[in-house]
Write a protein that binds this DNA or RNA. Structure first.
Length: 881
DNA sequence: ATCCTCACG
DNA sequence: ACGTACGTGAGGATG
């Protein structure tokens, strides 16, 4: 069998990969998507073709012989974007580390080198594959030279193969005629001029008839489309030049030794280090044998036998420090990871619920371990607490929360990420081990891999504790972690376990009522529109409103017309159809998200147990999911009625307390603006006071409009003021909005200084902080994009305010929970909605609960202004607000 | 999977 | 000139 050589057009493939793949960077901010894509295509091709030789050709910056021929050739390719340019030298280094042969030559393009090598290799009797994104190369195709053109679209790569016959089939022309084709039609991307008015169609026709440019010119009078004939007469010299430009030089003076291109083992240590640095985890698995041995010995094993398990648990109970993870998916227990240090060796086990190793037994053992160990670390302590009753122990360490505090912008805190960042170890991620399988399926089909993943979780939890603690110390967040986040975790766990009672019957009736009206509206809308369509489809609705009925409003979103409420509201007064659609939307939302949506979460205990997530938001707030109980309607009366289905257990009432303008008070404190502080000390109605001071009118003469405007400005300040945003909100001009803002800053002079200071600080340090030291990085401030940068500025202004308010209510929650227990009350904290706490209060404890809420919420932080709350009791959530 | 819309603070 | 208010989660449509 003849030998095979693979030749690659380096820049062309990098280009393809760059534009075909989404942006990708490693932790250092180096762009890596082109390199990643290149390697992907390289590995894939090598695996498919199994070549004996490999060479990558790169262009140099030096001018080529084409420049001497044609002045305009200079401007050729459009300039490379910086994000791609920076990847080129790294790509070459990676290839060098892999021992891949590379060539380039002054005065010649990669095409010419590839053409020369392809032809020479063919002469030596080899099978040749040329990999390039450039169709120019098709002229090289023969029965032994295959041109492969990868196409990357939406992350998927398909490859088109061209031997000589394939070129003929696709273009009706021989490979050599591709040069003629280019000469006639030109190539914009290569800056090759063509004949005006001659495209691919005409060019192909001419070539089928006359074979080549010269012969066509000889018969120029017969050339069919008059336009082409004239173009030929006028610009024949141009076509001849273009032909020379398009022709690949297959006789470049390259010195090339095939032996140096022979494929060796490219899984070298150097390459491994590179892949690690670039964070190409998928590729690292190719380096099984050459991977660096870890410093500490590790062992990962799966346990399914009772006697084995008992021995391990016995050993673990002697250990001071454990890593633990309980794996549950969709409410099903799938396994338990346990890790500890044993004679300089880290042992990690995954216990699977099989035979005598029942779920109950394993969880019981886990609880015992948690009670007896001096320190237990886990990636998610709260999920563990679901299965066990633990007092608020200070010996628990939540590595997920620690990693979140270090960088709250990540979308997840997985063991492989934490290992990479805090242990410097590259562990295969869940996706590497199981692909797209979830753990439930993974445990069935790939038990070993899934179990290994569980081992890693316990292992990373154990090992990352100290580095994470160090990192928290170094960023002055250890106090925040130890005294706020960790205790809060226990409070949140209790809230989740407690749940909130919901009247399923009432909820059903509410939904049924909505449905009656929805059907009515649907009928009317179809009539008014003159046809039936899906009202829930913004696309279809846009066509009906703005094309069929030609209502004003035009385009707005990328994909078509905006049908958002603020757009429709402008049309509603004049068009009943639009008003009906708005009402329909409102009802449909209430029914799908709330009436129907909540019903499925009601448990056997009549209660809904939401999950409160502590590691989601960028600012430090908590979030609520499955279901979200932090966005239950209240602003519109019809929606607000839903709150009547949230009821306390028998013999209890609800006590609801919410902070009054906590964010504005935080702003007053943090800025130290005396005028705003004073305003809070004097007035109950801060918005009226603001209006009075900003618009220079006596307090009692402030009009409703003035108050409304002042309120909007107050909001705007907290959001990171911009005149545009304010103008949108108030439907005024930007100029007017800017005037309001200016007046505001004149009235409260220190606010501007404070907000500007936050932006400056963020630019200098790269992050902003809350009163309690919580950090939020603001990488957007470094962006070259104006929009992104402006966003960064608003974030820098808003996050310390929103985040400090979040810190304060977290402190209040911990203290309220603690006080309820210490006073031996039956009442329990159920929900937190950012500035509001809801307590299920035993009827005979209402006074104590009110006192606790009042005291703990008001005293959670000591500010220059007082923290005030509004408090209500009621027999359901509607009544308690 | 991603967009649009809309519910809350 | 750019094209937005800050922070979330969920449902439905659509590719």
């Amino acid at each position: 069998m003849s030998e095979k050589i693979l030749l690659i057009d380096g820049h062309s493939i990098l280009n393809r990969a760059y534009y075909g793949l989404p942006e990708l960077t490693n932790s250092e901010g180096l762009h890596t998507n082109a390199i990643y894509g290149f390697l992907n295509i390289l590995f894939k091709t090598i695996e498919e073709e199994k070549p004996d030789y490999l060479t990558v050709a790169f262009d140099l910056h030096a001018p080529t012989f084409r420049h001497q021929m044609y002045e305009a050739y200079k401007g050729t390719r459009k300039p490379m974007p910086q994000e791609l340019r920076e990847q080129v030298p790294v790509m070459k280094d990676v290839l060098a580390a892999m021992g891949v042969c590379m060539i380039s030559k002054e005065g010649y393009e990669a095409d010419d080198l590839l053409g020369t090598l392809a032809k020479k290799s063919e002469e030596k009797g080899m099978e040749v594959t040329v990999l390039s994104g450039d169709r120019d190369l098709l002229q090289l195709a023969s029965s032994h030279i295959c041109i492969r053109i990868p196409k990357t679209r939406f992350g998927k790569t398909t490859v088109e193969d061209y031997f000589a016959d394939d070129v003929k089939e696709k273009y009706q022309l021989s490979p050599e005629q591709i040069i003629e084709l280019k000469a006639l039609m030109g190539d914009a991307s290569d800056n090759i001029p063509g004949l005006p008015g001659v495209g691919e169609k005409t060019a192909t026709k001419i070539l089928l008839e006359y074979g080549n440019v010269e012969n066509a010119y000889a018969h120029v009078e017969d050339i069919k489309p008059n336009k082409a004939k004239n173009a030929f007469l006028e610009h024949y010299d141009l076509a001849v030049l273009s032909k020379k430009l398009a022709a690949i030089n297959i006789d470049s003076p390259v010195e090339y030794d095939w032996e140096s291109a022979r494929i060796k083992d490219y899984y070298t240590q150097d390459a491994y280090d590179f892949f690690k640095e670039l964070e190409f985890k998928n590729f690292l698995s190719r380096f099984e044998d050459t991977s660096a041995p870890a410093e500490v010995e590790k062992s990962f094993s799966t346990v399914t036998e009772l006697d084995q398990a008992e021995e391990i648990f016995g050993k673990a109970r002697q250990k001071p420090e454990l890593g633990l993870h309980i794996l549950k998916e969709n409410g099903v227990f799938l396994g338990m990871g346990l890790s500890f240090l044993d004679e300089e060796k880290v042992l990690s086990y995954c216990f699977l619920p099989q035979g005598f190793l029942t779920e109950a037994y394993l969880l019981e053992q886990a609880q015992v371990l948690c009670q007896e160990a001096a320190m237990v670390s886990s990636l998610d302590v709260k999920s563990m607490l679901r299965h066990m009753d633990l007092e608020n122990h200070t010996k628990m360490f939540d590595a997920g929360i620690a990693a979140y505090l270090m960088n709250p912008l990540k979308s997840a805190y997985t063991y492989d990420d934490i290992a990479k960042e805090y242990l410097g170890e590259m562990l295969p991620a869940k996706e590497d081990l199981l692909g797209k399988l979830n753990y439930t399926k993974g445990m069935k089909d790939q038990e070993e891999q899934a179990a290994l993943s569980v081992c890693y979780m316990a292992y990373v939890a154990l090992k990352s504790r100290k580095p994470l603690k160090k990192a928290l110390e170094g960023t002055e967040m250890l106090h925040l972690f130890t005294n706020i986040e960790m205790p809060l975790l226990f409070t949140l766990s209790e809230m989740e376990k407690e749940g909130i009672r919901v009247n399923a019957q009432a909820l059903k009736e509410y939904g049924d009522q909505l449905y009656v009206r929805i059907l009515e509206l649907e009928k009317e809308i179809y009539q008014e529109a003159g046809e039936e369509f899906n009202i829930n489809s913004p696309k279809q609705l846009g066509v009906i409103l703005f094309e069929k009925l030609k209502l004003p409003g035009g385009k707005k979103t990328k994909t078509g017309y905006s049908t958002a409420a603020d757009v429709l509201e402008k049309l509603a007064p004049d068009h009943k159809l639009v008003a009906d659609i708005l009402e329909y939307r409102q009802l449909a939302k209430l029914k799908s998200t709330y009436a129907d949506g909540l019903a499925v979460y009601i448990g056997e205990d009549e209660r809904i147990h939401s999950t409160f997530n502590q590691t989601i938001t960028a600012t430090g707030r908590i979030s609520s999911t499955e279901p979200n109980l932090q966005n239950i309607p209240i602003r519109m009366e019809l929606g607000r009625l839903i709150r009547k289905v949230f009821i306390p257990r028998d013999g209890y009432v609800f006590t609801d307390a919410d902070y009054s303008q906590i964010e504005l008070r935080v702003l007053a404190h943090m800025s130290g603006d005396e005028k705003l502080i004073q305003a809070y000390q004097e007035a109950q109605d801060i918005h009226r006071m603001t209006a009075s001071q900003v618009f220079h009118v006596p307090f009692d003469e402030v009009t409703d409009l003035q108050r409304r405007n002042a309120k909007a400005v107050n909001f705007g300040i907290v959001y990171g003021i911009s005149s545009f945003g304010l103008s949108q909100d108030l439907s005024i001009t930007r100029k007017e909005a800017a005037q309001y803002i200016e007046n505001y800053f004149e009235t409260y002079p220190k606010i501007k200084g404070f907000l500007d200071g936050l932006v400056t600080e963020a630019k200098e340090k790269g992050y902003v902080t809350t009163m309690f030291g919580r950090r939020r990085p603001v990488p957007e401030l470094k962006s070259s994009n104006f929009m992104q940068r402006s966003f960064g500025e608003r974030v820098a202004m808003n996050s310390p305010i929103q985040g400090t308010a979040a810190d304060i209510i977290k402190i209040a929650m911990i203290r309220v929970g603690k006080a309820l227990k210490e006073q031996n009350l039956k009442s329990r904290l159920l929900l937190q909605v950012h500035d509001e706490l809801l307590v299920e209060t035993a009827e005979d404890e209402t006074a104590q609960v009110s006192a606790i809420l009042e005291k703990e919420m008001k005293n959670a932080a000591s500010l220059a202004v007082s923290l005030e709350i509004d408090m209500h009791t009621g027999s359901n959530w509607y009544e308690a607000k």
